[in-house]
């Protein structure tokens, strides 16, 4: 073993003048964090797709029961971006009914479950699309009871938050449809209305909030009195 390793020794040119010492490459020290960030970004698409857009994660408005809450929700249709505007007030929860009665579902509940109505008042322009809303009651244990979502087993699917006979327009899904246009023969929705859809819940549950959601991840929270 010589005293000095060959590649850290000051190289000396033939004419005796010293040249710049040769050093091991250090560029990878910069490259490593760049590589890690690139890797995380490349696999990060899973976060929006499988988590953010597949559940209720973004509270866009909130308020107490019996107070009006104004909501402006960013959404889009076949023609581009738009804002869904409405005001909502939670008037309260109805009593307990052992039978679940909805448009296509009528049956007796079991296992200590009852049907409770959610009384909601709405105000909105008749041109706003308010079909396809889901209502979720959350209890003090964090359990969620929902009606109106496309994957819900029981209850109405599209007309939870709007009047049965005058639900108003839907969002255009193809470009030939016109925003805000009603089907032939349908009357426009009133500017103010009330709904009271039923949700199947345990009789002894204590509810802390009601969530209103049209599209994940956005939702509106209306807190119930404790």
């Amino acid at each position: 073993m010589s005293a000095t390793p060959p590649d850290v020794r000051e190289p000396v040119a033939e004419d005796g003048t010293a040249t710049v010492p040769r050093r091991p490459s250090r560029w990878w020290i910069v490259a490593v964090p760049v590589a890690i960030v690139t890797m995380l970004a490349a696999s990060g698409y899973r976060v929006p797709v499988f988590w953010w857009e597949s559940g209720q994660h973004h509270e866009i408005a909130d308020g107490e029961a019996e107070e009006w809450v104004a909501v402006a929700e960013q959404t889009s249709d076949a023609h581009g971006d738009l804002t869904r505007r409405y005001s909502v007030r939670l008037a309260g929860l109805g009593g307990a009914d052992p039978a679940y009665v909805a448009r296509f579902d009528e049956f007796r509940l079991a296992d200590g479950m009852v049907a409770r109505t959610v009384r909601l008042d709405f105000r909105a322009d008749p041109g706003q699309s308010l079909k396809n809303c889901a209502l979720t009651l959350v209890d003090d244990e964090g359990r969620q009871y929902r009606v109106g979502h496309v994957h819900d087993g029981i209850g109405p699917k599209t007309r939870v938050c709007v009047p049965e006979e005058t639900p108003g327009p839907g969002l255009p899904i193809i470009e030939s449809e016109v925003r805000g246009r009603l089907p032939e023969g349908e009357q426009p929705r009133p500017r103010e209305w009330s709904v009271s859809p039923a949700i199947a819940v345990p009789e002894n549950a204590t509810f802390v909030e009601l969530r209103i959601s049209f599209e994940d991840p956005d939702y509106v929270t209306l807190r119930l009195p404790r």
């Binding site: 679940y100 359990r143 929902r146 009606v147 819900d152 087993g153 029981i154 199947a200 819940v201």
Partner: peptide
């Protein structure tokens, strides 16, 4: 498949 509402036997 089965769409389950919380607490309601399917």
């Amino acid at each position: 498949s089965a769409s389950l509402s919380t607490g309601v036997r399917h």
